[in-house]
Design a protein around this nucleic acid. Structure first.
Lengths: 214, 214, 214, 214
DNA sequence: GATGAATGAGGATTCATTCAT
DNA sequence: TATGAATGAATCCTCATTCAT
């Protein structure tokens, strides 16, 4: 524990720097989008010099990629939590609730995530790939969930349903983030959940007849 | 009839140029987004010189605004058609079908429309306003439709529902445009309609079979 | 007189065009200076198309050169008139009056002349040469006049005096042109004459003792 | 004394850069005038990249304005010196000498000053205002001097005389700057002084020899 | 000849990136 | 490592000039 304190501290310092820079980048990307965000603006927001920024990232794209990676990881954790919580025997509204809650919370905490996911057009190659990867990963999760809920669906259809469900969630998250915090936002969250429930409900294999879900 | 042939022909040429430039702009915006699209790239795509572009548009923003205006007009026409077709007495699936069909067709013909609507963060003032206005106008239409379908909803709730429905449509359109034309796309279109029907159905005033709804 | 009417008329038309263009150029140069004057602006001012302008002048510089030439010729005529009128036996005030009057009148009619003469820095080569030539020619005239008035001066000194006198006249003309027409301008004209008289008076060989020159 | 050496050195470097850029600008403006001077040319003359130029000046106009301001300040100092030296009891030739000497010296050191003052037509707004202000301020000084020398003149006449005197000085300075340094220039300087003395002498209140003028 | 659309080199300006301190 | 000045390629836009009609 007391071995090599310098390197560790150095590393720790580096990590702090990187976190600080990524936070600044998130903030600037949210405000202006990726294309219009200048590295100088990010450095300024992080209160470091442009040179320092380039000590930790080889270029602007790498910032976005790393930010995406980290957000994705956090998102996965949130999702993981979500899917852990997701007892498949729960009635659908509760299931949706359990899955969506951490996802919504995460996106409210990290609006940059959605910001980075949108505007898929105006980004250079590697980021677009990143998007693709993130999207694909989320899609796979949803796909898995749907497979569990509706085992009868064939793969092609399931994928379409998953994509649509994910689309609804993204659209709903946009609305949630746009709504002012408070009643308005809560109402929007409820609306999103309702939409998702209604969309998925007819897919469910009838589970227990006579027990109306809601 | 034989009077002033030159001006007329000239005007026609000008219109053709403008159309050609806007088409090129649409294409470039789709590929790279507004912020990253360079006027030189647009001119190149239109196979004219930068100077020619600036003979018809005072600056880059004006191109996007004009393109947005034209697309919006076409979109409104499509919507108009859509809402004309929309017989409120139709069963919901048919109603959704009637409303969505022209909108989908329009967006397939003009993918730039969705491209311009996305990425609202990284655009300068006037275009953002455009976005806002276009979005608001579409929202108002949907709101009106929902008011007709579900007269019981209070205004606040209706607006939320309209926003959610519009969100679903946009998300669905993204999927539709991303799908390769053919079966895949048709299936996605069907999925979008299904999602919308399921979302809206519970809002409808319960209707007696065979009896006119309202 | 009735021979080759077409060519002549054509030539006449050409001359009119050229005059019209030069007038427009004079006006634009006065307003914005040579460097900032665009050929399109000149063509617009002349109510012709840019193409027409280039039918008569190979480039922008040629316009300024031709304008300078013509103004110079007119100026020479005015000067000629001036120097013809200049009876060397006249008392100095009357002499200055006789010489300056047509020059002032010319410059009031053609403010572009002074405009072209100034700003000797911001013009490309040929025009600068033009300036030089015009200036030199005017200088020579003044030099001649001074030689007649003050035969005792050696060439070097005479040239300096001529340059200074010309400078005073130019400076005075600027003031005259800047003054609103009317009393103000008349007063400024008088002041210019006074300045010139006072400058030259001591150089004169005493002509008739006892006849005080005012 | 050893505190904050970096900021100080940095500031010093910045100041040096600005001076270097302004010097380059002065040189280019002298050669080509404001309108035809390109920022790239200025940067090249200063042996820096265009980007560096824009680190210190927001745009081309700002360069001219700052240069004008600095020259003006120096000019005012020179003038101040001039007017301090100006003992009104001195005979006119000595008075003119005292006033003109620093002004001439300044303009010989800073030929850009006159270059910027000329060509007032082809410059955009703020610089033209600068010109106006500078001119007005010089005029006011001369006006004051003349008021002291010739208290009898009414304000309108005095202003005309001041403008004419200033015009003579400017014209003379042009000649001085155009003359090769050495005898030629000295002679031209002398001629300018002579011209000014002759112009102003008749305005002076007749003074009794040996008696203080005023 | 006249027209005005088209051209494209060039100018002002920005910003991702590098480097001396 | 941190700094921020320096770099220069790339962008938006203009305008002298050409050319198809």
């Amino acid at each position: 524990m007391s071995e090599e304190p310098a390197p560790r501290r150095r590393q720790a310092r580096g990590e702090r720097r990187i976190a600080q820079l990524l936070q600044a980048a998130a903030s600037v990307f949210c405000r202006t989008g990726y294309a219009a965000a200048s590295t100088n603006a990010i450095a300024r927001e992080a209160k470091v010099s442009p040179g320092t920024l380039y000590q930790y990232f080889p270029n602007k794209e790498a910032i976005a990629v790393e930010l995406g990676d980290r957000l994705l990881q956090e998102m996965r954790d949130a999702e993981g939590l979500a899917f852990e919580r997701a007892d498949l025997d729960l009635p659908l509204p509760e299931l949706v609730d359990a899955v969506l809650e951490p996802v919504i919370a995460f996106n409210c905490r990290n609006p940059a995530f959605l910001a980075l996911m949108h505007g898929s057009g105006d980004v250079p190659g590697r980021i677009a790939e990143e998007h693709e990867a993130v999207h694909e990963s989320m899609l796979a999760r949803v796909d898995g969930l749907i497979e569990a809920l509706a085992p009868g669906l064939d793969a092609g259809e399931r994928r379409r349903v998953a994509a649509m469900a994910l689309g609804i969630v993204k659209a709903g998250l946009d609305l949630v983030l746009a709504a002012p915090e408070g009643q308005e936002r809560d109402g929007t969250v409820a609306e999103l959940k309702r939409a998702l429930v209604r969309y998925l409900d007819p897919l469910l294999a009838p589970r227990e007849l006579g027990a109306p879900r809601r």
